[in-house]
Every structure is written in C-alpha cells, then in structure tokens.
C-alpha cells in the first residue's frame, strides 16, 4: 500500500488513564495528509495527552492509532515528524545554533545537510542574528521561536504545534501563521493545538473540539461555524415601513443601532436592500455575519443557552 495513501494521523478509541483519572476517553479521529488540523479544548480536556500518545511519549491504556502509517511512537514515523511542545525547554547552556545542530544529529540527518538546515531554520523563525547566543539569555518568545525552528528541521511530513504562539507578540503570531501557510503549501500536515481560536479559524482546514477526553465536534471550520445566516444593516431615516420590509426576510432584532435579520439566505440580500431604499430609507452599511469559532466553541462546550444572542424585538430608534 502506498504510504502516502494512509492518513497522517488515525486513532481508534484511544484511551489514557492515570490511575482512576481518565485523561483521554476514546479518541477516534483521522487527519488527512496535507491538512492543517486544529485541536481545541478547555484546559484538562486531554489535548496534550493526545499529542503525547501520538508521539510515543506516553503509552495508551487501550485503543489503537497510527501516525504516518506507523504504529504510535514508531521511530520510522518520528523520523518524519516535527514537534513544538507546549512546555518548550531547550538546553539553556547551548546556543540556538547548537540546539538546532543537536536536533539534526538526533534526527539521523546526513551530516552534509545539517549546516544548511540549521541556517534555514534560523532564518525562518527570525533568530539568525542571535544564533550564537546562549538559549539561557533568550526571552520566552525567542525560546518559542527556537522551538518552532527545531520542529521545522528536516522538512517534516507532519508537524505538531502545541500552543505555538503562547509566548509570542503579534508579530510573532503573524510569523507563525506564515510558517503554517508555508508548511501547508509544501504538503506537510500540521496538527495545531491552540487556545487562540481566531488563529485556528484563520489557518485550519478542519477542527476537532475535545472535552473531558472525548471529541465533541469535528469538521471543517466552515461546517462548524456555519455559513452566514445573519445580516446586519445600518439604516438612516427608518420608519415602520422599513421594519415591515425587513420582517419579510426573517426574524429581526435591533442591537446598537443595527438591524439584525436572522435566517436570511445570502442571495436575498440585494432584494432586501432594494426594498429598504424603496420605502425611503438610506442604507449606510450591510454586513453578513456568522458565528466565530470562539462563539461556536463556547456554545458546544457550555450548551446552546450560553451562546445565544440577546435578541429583542425589532424596533427603530
């Protein structure tokens, strides 16, 4: 069987118990090759445990899984994997260049390739100017950049990024998005574990939401947040006729000077605008609106009631 035909990650009912505590309660999922996959969940949901099982850092209590077509923890798979741990720590008595060289050596990389790999990683994560400084003198953000560089060594087929921007400033976060984009363009699979949902929303193709050791939702970002079924309209010179016109397109509420029309199909927006104008109102702005991943995340984890909008009956100012 062509190894490329296997998913990058596949798990079936993966369970991890620590004594009586269940950290992972039956993880079943598949991540395709070349996909940027987001793995979301509240603290203690089992995200890092799942990553540790996938990397062979911990063994599963039951269930099975494969990474790049190999059993969990297999060296053949680890040779093609890059990993940035959530708790990123590197030898503080080595320089950044030496840390990268060490990881090249541990990866069985041919000696001739190592220098170029190290330079490329330093350039990619923006540490070229501090390459010969000791890691102990680095800020947390710089150490996280170094960790990213380590994860990118050797052109890995699969990269695990566990909270890759937790210590980074906005520029660093932007750089990480660029790096993930570059990985995707060259066909690598990215497994992104992050609390920053806007970040996940921007870069991920699919997302799994995990809670109490189980996946509660999995799908494309679009399928999770849904297509826009809400329209926000700011109108001057409103009148009862405007309200009546809007109600023909869906349930209407009014928030902070905006009409919100719920359940409207996007192809009906031009007709709605034309109707408002026809009754003498002036349209200042029209914005389709869909739920953010964060809103969906909260809805799913807390239940729909907490994520519901604070609707009220339509009524102009």
């Amino acid at each position: 069987m062509n190894p490329q035909a296997t998913p990058a990650i596949e798990t079936f009912e993966l369970v991890k118990r620590y004594g009586d505590a269940v950290a992972l309660a039956g993880l079943t999922m598949a991540v395709s090759r070349g996909e940027v996959f987001g793995f979301l969940g509240p603290n203690g949901a089992g995200k890092t445990t799942a990553v540790k099982l996938l990397l062979g850092l911990a063994s599963a209590s039951s269930g099975s899984g494969w990474v790049l077509g190999e059993d969990l923890g297999a060296r053949a798979a680890r040779r093609r994997i890059g990993y940035l741990p959530e708790l990123f720590r590197y030898q503080d008595w080595l320089s950044a260049r030496e840390v990268l060289a060490l990881h090249c050596a541990l990866s069985d990389m041919p000696t001739a390739r190592r220098a170029a790999e190290v330079e490329h990683a330093l350039d990619t994560v923006g540490l070229a100017r501090r390459a010969d400084d000791r890691v102990g003198t680095f800020s947390k953000g710089m150490q996280q950049r170094l960790g990213l560089g380590v994860a990118l060594l050797g052109t890995p087929e699969l990269v695990f990024l566990d909270e890759p921007t937790s210590a980074l400033d906005p520029v660093g976060r932007h750089d990480v998005r660029e790096i993930i984009g570059a990985l995707k363009r060259r066909g690598a699979t990215v497994f992104l574990n992050s609390h920053l949902l806007t970040e996940v929303e921007h870069v991920c193709d699919r997302v799994a939401m995990i809670d109490r050791g189980r996946i509660v939702r999995i799908g494309s970002v679009t399928s999770l947040i849904g297509v826009a079924t809400e329209l926000r309209v700011r109108v001057a010179d409103t009148s009862p006729q405007v309200d009546a016109s809007l109600r023909r397109y869906g349930r209407v509420s009014f928030h902070d000077g905006w009409y919100v029309i719920h359940g409207i199909a996007q192809d009906r927006v031009p007709a709605l605008v034309a109707d408002i104008v026809a009754v003498g109102a002036r349209v200042h702005a029209v914005e389709p609106h869909h739920a953010t991943l964060e809103e969906r995340f909260l809805q799913i984890l807390r239940g729909p009631s907490n994520g519901a909008a604070d609707d009220r009956s339509a009524g102009g100012p």
Partner: peptide, 14 residues
C-alpha cells in the same frame, strides 16, 4: 521535571 526531554524523545532515538 523541566520538560527538556519532551523535545528530545520525539526524535527518532531509542
């Protein structure tokens, strides 16, 4: 204890 090992052992080493 420090987590240093989390970066080392995922490498293809026994």
């Amino acid at each position: 204890e420090t987590g240093l090992i989390l970066a080392v052992l995922p490498r293809p080493i026994r």
